[in-house]
Amino acid sequence: MKIAVCLKRVPDTTTKIVIGPEGKSIDESGVKFVPNPYDEYAVEEALKLKEAAGVGEVVVLSLGTDAAQETLRTALAMGVDRAILLQSQGSPDGLEVAKALAAELKDGGYDLILFGKLAVDDYNHQVGAMVGELLGLPTITSVAHLSISGGTAEAEREIEGGIENVSCSLPAVLTCDKGLNTPRLPSLKGIMAAKKKPLEVKPVSLGSGTLATLGLSLPAERKAGRIVGEGPDAVVELIRLLREEAKVI
């Protein structure tokens, strides 16, 4: 089983967002960066599948600046065998990122290529499915449950008010949702071992794409609310406000 995982370096989810001086991206000073949480599900699933198969290789790829090496080392510490950094500034156009990843993955001989369902910074929700399409591989997105046997993947994905059952043959592209597994933490031994694992750096240049970021801003603060009252007796006043002031019921 040869598995690739695409991993993005993103700000920690508790980060307070400050807009950078040019008004198009965030101010990164003091921000803690972590592996995209959904990509950790992908790493964990890859490691589990390799362990179950007894043989194989898990390769992790990230497209980003040199800073992403640290993120790749985290994956190596979890147990991934080797890492590739596609060195680039990135692009607001997910299709350009997908093209660069697809070009690297194309002749890799992977049985499975795993992604997170979305990156929690750009919320693009697209790169995995685009890579699948570009490579002409069977693609299942937002996988919350997976079983693989005899070269077939059976997956469940959440849809509004239900679960969709989807199957395909390998090689395939899957994007991972929460619920798939519980990602392991890197062990001390893993962290030591990671330092010696191969991490290849390949500069790539992305196309200009068709999306332009015009600006980034903070959402309007919600108007300060108010405490209507204490205990069940406040309910009558709440109902009145919802009807007459907020006009939502």
């Binding site: 967002i17 910074d121 980034l216 801003s217």
Partner: peptide
């Protein structure tokens, strides 16, 4: 973007 902590304006060319 950023889980609703920021709003991005994008032009589609």
């Amino acid at each position: 973007v950023y889980a609703g902590k920021a709003l991005q304006r994008v032009r589609l060319d």
